[in-house]
């Protein structure tokens, strides 16, 4: 069997299973839809929860965005270390060392702390 066909078959079966859950629920469930407020341990909401949510860790996201780009290079690198040799190791760890400098800087600036 072609692998992509196998994956499509599996995905299709999962789709059928999930659809079956929803259809069974339609058929078997106690009828009606309960309209409920969000659960606020007995309280009622005073405004919509979906709002400008203030995350405190935005500085981490930026460092993360930059840092995880090293993965782009590291996955192919892992394949060729054995064939290229010392040069590849030195180059990659120089690269990573450069990035760690950035991480240490961010840490020193307190970017990894927020609470």
């Amino acid at each position: 069997m072609q692998p992509y066909l196998a994956v499509l078959i599996l995905l299709g079966s999962l789709g059928i299973a999930i659809a079956a859950v929803y259809i069974l629920s339609r058929l078997l469930a106690v009828p009606g839809v309960v309209g409920v407020g969000p659960f606020l341990s007995g309280g009622l909401p005073s405004e919509h929860a979906v709002s400008r949510f203030h995350v405190r860790w935005y500085a981490v996201t930026m460092v993360f965005l930059a840092f995880d780009m090293e993965m782009v290079f590291m996955y192919p690198w892992a394949l060729v270390v054995a064939s290229i040799g010392v040069k590849a190791v030195v180059e990659m760890f120089l690269f990573l060392g450069l990035l760690m400098v950035g991480v240490v800087y961010a840490w020193r600036e307190g970017a990894l702390r927020w609470a």
Partner: peptide, 14 residues
């Protein structure tokens, strides 16, 4: 229980 329980919808959900 998940299969027989009544459906439930919150206020203005997406």
């Amino acid at each position: 229980r998940s299969l027989i329980v009544q459906r439930r919808g919150t206020l203005a959900p997406d």
